[in-house]
Simulated scan of single mutants.
Amino acid sequence: MMEFREIDRSNYWDCISLTVDDSQKWFVADNKWSLVEAAYEDGLYTLGVYHGDTMVGFILYDFDDTIPGWSMSRFMIGKQYQGKGYGKQAVVAFLDYFKKKHNAEKLYISVSLDNAVVRGMYADIGFEEIKEVAYLFPGRQFREMQMVKKL
């Protein structure tokens, strides 16, 4: 069973120790970067994804004025925990957690066009593709598919 705990002094080292495989590094920002952003920007919420007492992943979510709507901006499962079904379990559990906490009707995500496996997982959970978006993030062009799930 997956559960979520806010990132704080007691668990931030566990969070920054989680990394993805080198082949995935362009799909999600490094957790250290995400925690720094959350510390200095308002309205960014960070959660550790736990399986039992072990942090296996990380979520950053926010209300994105450009959509406008709630967005799961960052989601990752540590490379040592991948391939065990934790990603799908965590997203399904987060949807329930998020709906109860924020009483929202929709949740948006953006997924790299190059990340077919994760796009498929989100589609299996019920996310629908909306539109392709492109942006620069430090000096690199990214192309993503924006998706939405009605809660």
Score class of each variant (00 low, 15 high):
Ala104Gln: 08
Pro138Trp: 12
Arg140Gln: 10
Tyr135Ile: 06
Gly139Asp: 14
Glu128Trp: 14
Glu144Ser: 03
Asp114Ala: 07
Ile125Trp: 11
Arg143Lys: 13
Met121Ser: 02
Tyr135Val: 08
Glu129Arg: 04
Lys106Cys: 06
Leu107Asp: 01
Ala104Tyr: 12
Asp114Arg: 02
Asn103His: 14
Phe127Ile: 08
Gly139Leu: 11
Ile130Gly: 11
Glu129Ala: 11
Arg143Leu: 13
Asp124Ile: 00
Val148Lys: 01
Met145Arg: 04
Arg119Met: 09
Val133Lys: 06
Val117Trp: 09
Pro138Cys: 13
Met145Ala: 04
Ala123Leu: 06
Ala134Val: 12
Glu129Cys: 10
Ala123Met: 09
Tyr122Lys: 01
Val133Leu: 11
Asn103Cys: 13
Asn115Cys: 10
Glu132His: 04
Arg119Phe: 03
Ile109Phe: 11
Glu105Leu: 12
Glu105Ala: 13
Phe137His: 13
Arg119Ile: 05
Met147Ala: 02
Met147Asn: 01
Gln146Lys: 04
Val148Ser: 01
Lys106Asp: 07
Leu136Met: 14
Gly126Gln: 05
Lys149Tyr: 09
Glu144Arg: 01
Val117Tyr: 10
Phe137Gly: 14
Lys106His: 06
Ser112Gln: 11
Lys106Phe: 10
Arg119Glu: 08
Glu132Ile: 09
Glu132Ala: 09
Val111His: 00
Ala104Lys: 06
Ile130Trp: 11
Asn115Arg: 04
Tyr122Pro: 01
Ile125Leu: 10
Arg140Glu: 11
Glu105Cys: 12
Tyr108Gly: 00
Gly120Lys: 06
Tyr108Glu: 03
Asn103Tyr: 09
Leu107Ser: 03
